[in-house]
Structures are given as C-alpha cells and as structure tokens.
Nucleic acid binder design. Sequence first.
DNA 1: GCCGTTTTCGGCCCGACTGTTTTCAGTCG
Length: 590
Amino acid sequence: MSNTEIATILRNVAAAYAIKNESKYRFQIIAYQKAADAIENSTSEVKDLYKEEKLESLPGVGPSIRQHLEELITTGKVKHFAWVMQDIPESVFTLLNVPTFGPKKSYRLVSEFGLKNPIAVIADLEKIARAGKIASLEGFGAKSESDILQAIQEYKQGRAKTKRMVLPYAAELAEKVLLYLKKSKAVIQAQPLGSLRRMVSTVGDIDFAVVSNSPNEAIKHFIAYPYKDRVIEQGPTTASILISGGKQIDLMVQSKDSFGSLLQHFTGSKHHNVHLREYALKKGLSLSEHGIKKRVAGGKLRMETYETEEKFYKALGLQWIPPEMREDKGEIELASKNNLPQLVELKDIKGDFHIHSNYPIEPSHDMGKNTMEEMLEKAEKLRYEYLGFSEHNPSLSKHTSTQIYSILSRRKDKIEQLNDSNKYVRVINLLEVDILTSGKLAIDEKSLATIDAAIVSIHSNFSMDKKTMTKRVLQGLSHPKAKILAHPTGRLLNIRSGYELDFEKIFDFCIKNKKALEINAWPTRLDLPDSLVFEAIKQGVKFVIDTDSHALWQMEMMKYGVAVARRGWAKKSDILNTLPYNELISWLKS
DNA sequence: GCCGTTTTCGGCCCGACTGTTTTCAGTCG
C-alpha cells in the first residue's frame, strides 16, 4: 500500500468524522488530515517506517493513529475506520474528488438520491442534475444545480487530477500573467506567491498579490484576462480564474500599508502559516493577511499593519524566513533564536559539472547540441570559474573497449587544448558513466584513466527491488574515479516516480567515502528531491548542483537547482561547486 | 487525536467567497 493510498484513507476517515458529527469530532478531523499530509509528504514509505518502528516520528502520528496504521499494514483494514465509516456509502468518498464537493455536500446528495454505486455515482448525479431534480432540494437552488454540472464537467476534463506544472513552466506562465496585470493603472505592484515563490518543484495554482488603491479596478482587470476560461469567484479583495488547460490563478489585493502581511499570508505554506499563528497566539497575537491583531488595554483588539514581510516577522520576534524554508520543518523555532542557516545562493555557484556538448563521442544516450567552445563561452558569461564536460560514455553496443579508449583519449587531448587556449574558465574532464545492472561501471579501467572523475548514474533496468538497486548504486559509486551520483532517484516529474533506493545507506556511504550527490536542475528532474536533500544535509552529505545541459540556454536553469538546495536548507559550504577551482579539483582527484 | 522553550492537560489559525438564506453552512487555501 503506497503512502498516497494510505493518506487517502486517512482523509476519508476525516471526512467520515465530519459527516458523523463535525463539532464533536472537530479535533479528530484536524488530526487525521494532519497525519494524511505528513504521510503524503514523507520521504520514507509508511511500510518501511512500520518495520523500523518509527511511525511516530511522522509529525501528527501519535499512539492512536500509529496503532491504526499498524493494523492497516498487517491486515489490510482497520476496525476503528470501519466503525467511523459504517453508515457512509463508499460513493460519498468518490464524490470528494470532484472540485467544490466536500463531505457534507457529497453525503447529502448520495443519501437524498440513494447513489450507492461508487463507480457510477458521478454519472448518476449528472443525470439527476440534468433532470433538474437538485434545485428543489432544501438548501440547494438552480445555481447550485448548474454549479454541480459545471464541477462534474471540469472533473471529467481532469481538473481535479490536473498534473501540477513543473516549476520552470509555472514561472514562465506567471511571467505572462504578471505582464498583463501590470498593464492596469490600478495595479501598483504585483508579485507571484504561493508554491511558486517557495520554489516548490511542482506548482498547482498560481497565486498573485497585488497592491492597489482601487481594488475593484484591479480585480476587474484581472478577471478580464484574455486567456481565461471562466471566473471561479470574484469578491472585493480576491478573485480566481480558470485559464485554458485547467490551471487556476488566484489574486488577492491589499493596500500598500498591508502588503507585507499579504505577502506573508499568501506565500504560505499552509503548515507554516498555521504554526506561525499558533506561535503568535501564545503571545496574545492574532495573524491574518490584514496584519496583526493585538489585545490592548480594556481588552480591545487593535490591528497593526505591515508594509514589508521583514517588519511582519520582526513584530513576532522572528528573523525574516526565506520563502523556500516555510514548510514548518522547524524554521520558526530557529528564527526565534536568530539562528536560521545562511542558505546557498545562485551567485555562490562557481561552475557546472554536468554539461553535454556535441563532441563526437558516439554516446550511449542523447548528445548535446553545442560545441565545447560555445558552452565555454556561455560559462564565461555566467561568470563561472570552471566547467565540467560530462558527455555520456560511448555506446557499449557499438564499440569495442579499444575504440572507446581511443575516443576518450582524443577527447582528453581536446580538453587539454581548450585549457591551454582558454583564459577564463578552467575545463574539467568528466564523463557521465552508466552503472550497469551488475553494478560495474560501463567503461574499463584504461578508459577511466583518461578522465579526471566520473559522474555515475542509472539509465537502465529501473525496476530492481530496493535492496538490489542500492547494492548496484553503491558498487558503482565505490570506484575511486566515481565521485558524483547524478539524478539519484531517476524520477521524471509527471512521468515516472524513479527507482527505489535505501537513502540512509547512500547518505552514509557518501559521507564516509567523500562522494557527492547531485542536485540535477533539469526541469522535470529536480533530483535529488528537496525533501531528501533536507535529510541528507542534516546528516552532512555534500552536493553538487548541475544543470545537465544539452544546449546553451539550459545552462540558465541553475537557479532551479539552487532552489532545490535552498529548500533542503543547504548552505554554501554544503555545495561543492561553490569551491574555488583548486580546492574543487583536489576533492575530485582525491 | 496530537502535542509541549510559560502546558503530560487543555488547548487546537484565520479569513474570503458563494448560494441560500435572512444569519449561516460549506468549501477553499
């Protein structure tokens, strides 16, 4: 049973409690939702945590939910869950997947019309709505009926399951909307927030904060966005539209003097904000997007507004927290002690190791589009000190080992020539070498001797079990020339989830043997994922951030790799390609 | 049902918008 499936079960339990008696079970509902969130975001499989007796290390899992999870894993069902859900047809939980359907509405409609078939429930409800039978229900009306049809329509088009956008794509889309927003005189300032500002690897909705003295005008301009499909909602200070492709864009307007509070509120994350508000409550303060409410003499509440986020956090006795850290992982406590880490920045990066040129290496996988010279010129523009070429090793099926050696020797000469003629950027002779199914590297010792170091990676036979795959990777990484493990999970966002690895073992091995893991900035990779970077950094694993560029423009993607590192709380000292050339090369050749 | 830098008991974030109401329930973020 996957973490996602388990999280869904817990959310359904929460929904069942809400249907049974929302006020009575108010805190159970919150508890189950919290546990579901924690499981969904966990870097470890629940079944592994169970084996290691570490279920209660998940935030939000206590003695009670832990026991239920154990029962779920060992028997496949839970008596307590069955009790909570006993009078609720399964079809109710199906309906929860439809936008705008919560527990109450789903249960009401299922009961009212006897929709007991979980497979057909959505189609059945659609027929009923079309027949005009919903409008006459107490508490419903003609508008609710057409809204239900609309929601079902969008559900069928995949809005509920709409794939989240990869970060660089979302950033590009946000840029277009931003340009449009700024065309209005009513928009004094506009900024994308939410998961985009936190640089999460995938972005669902795009959120904007706007400063305006005439919110009405600003909202009117926003909902007139030419590429919108429809307006989802529109009020005096907020509005949401759906654009073609099913993406949602939310907008919130405040006056200038409250913009700091708005930025803070709308950047999230939800968990960070909830924790921050609980923290504030203990100081007698109440937070919102409008500002901070303080209790003053006479027991009255007074609202203080904040123009900047810095001032907002300061009013709570906190350091300003970088958006990438706002995930409720302990950042609030550190900020209260003035002890936040100094995160690595793009300007700290002194070079890129994972570069595929079009050098004729007859590679095992895809080749780059530009010459080594062109890529070096780009590196100079990026003010890099060094650049590592790391084409894929020559294809094994098409060459003998002697041929491979000869290709790599020629390449070595070429790189030496480049180093002689190039004034600004040092060239490092790397190679991306496949770790074969056996754990052996794809090229032999003689060929390996032609390069400074190898970036090793998995490009075949992904479906090995966790133990075997871990053994394979560790064997490949244990070769003295192998210094970096590239795109360690092999995931491709929205395409495949990657292979299974025992990262405890990998981290441990890297620390003991001075190996580095890669943060690969390729838009659909962003691999190692930030949550695992966070664990690795805590333990002292070193990283390199690479773009894996196959063309010049891709060398600009470094900022997304840096974002992953920052989300993992990496400091400059955790990232090896922030080192000056001499220190770097001595590590590579060590 | 979870949790602790004023608590192992007594708390638990805050507000916007919509539709159906005539003061609020449901959903969302």
